[in-house]
């Protein structure tokens, strides 16, 4: 039998363990128990608009605020994230994204497909693009790798013009206020005709980037724009 290894810690997966889980969940196992226990999976009750964990499913304060802001209301129909952004996931995503250990993305495959089928069937996935400079530096687009896992093929409908700054810099207010337009609609087959677009990205922080990405899509004929992200911070 071929030996399987935990994708994250490279420890061999025990045969007995693997078959147990296989029996219970039909999932192909690619993480050891101790690694997979460290994920905090998101599920209802949560915010209907951004998947923030809540005591009952409704709209959270942040999303209410978005809805009341003139420039930003109505841009993003819904965001769903797979996991909350705990220390473990932060380390995992940074190894994936900044160190460039692309194989790690594989651990998101199953849950991503499940969430797509459960909440977003029929939508057209569009990965959030990187600027040319960032793509050159990193050698791959982390959102695109994830989008490859979906059961339908994605469309590269956006390009990023402005070299993005580090998300973590600047206060929340600064990030929300900036009215720069980093994304441009880019489609060879012309404008959209009312499709529901699903933006794919790694992290939902304030939702600003995703809303900025939604804008050119809506202006070019998209009916609605939602997003599916790995982590909810």
């Amino acid at each position: 039998m071929k030996q399987n290894y935990c994708l994250r810690c490279l420890e061999p997966l025990e045969g007995a363990q693997a078959s147990w889980t296989a029996l219970l969940s039909c999932e192909k196992k690619n993480l050891c128990e101790s690694c997979s226990d460290k994920f905090h999976r998101l599920a209802p009750p949560w915010c209907l608009h951004c998947a923030r964990p809540l005591s009952c499913t409704e709209s959270c304060g942040d999303c209410e605020r978005w809805a009341k802001t003139r420039h930003w209301s109505g841009l993003l129909t819904r965001n769903i994230s797979l996991f909350s952004y705990n220390d473990f996931l932060q380390e995992l995503i940074s190894t994936y994204k900044y160190r460039g250990d692309i194989a790690l993305a594989e651990v998101f495959k199953e849950p991503l497909r499940n969430f797509y089928q459960q909440y977003f069937t029929g939508t057209t996935p569009v990965p959030v693009p990187l600027s040319k400079e960032r793509l050159q530096e990193r050698g791959f687009n982390q959102a695109e790798v994830i989008a490859e896992f979906l059961p339908v093929s994605y469309k590269p409908l956006l390009v990023r013009d402005i070299h993005e700054k580090k998300q973590s810099k600047g206060s929340r207010q600064d990030r929300l206020r900036g009215h720069v337009r980093p994304f441009v609609f880019n489609n060879h087959t012309g404008p959209l005709t009312g499709q529901h677009i699903l933006l794919i990205d790694d992290i939902y922080t304030t939702g600003t980037t995703l809303r900025k990405a939604a804008l050119p899509l809506l202006e070019n004929g998209a009916g609605r724009v939602s997003s599916l992200t790995i982590a909810r911070s």
Binding site: L10, G100, D101, I102, A103, L135, Q136, R138, G139, F140, N141, E144, V145
Partner: peptide
């Protein structure tokens, strides 16, 4: 592991 590489627009293999 292999991935679609933007450095050379090819499928490249890297060392984990």
């Amino acid at each position: 592991s292999s991935y679609k590489c933007s450095w050379c627009n090819d499928f490249c293999v890297y060392c984990r």
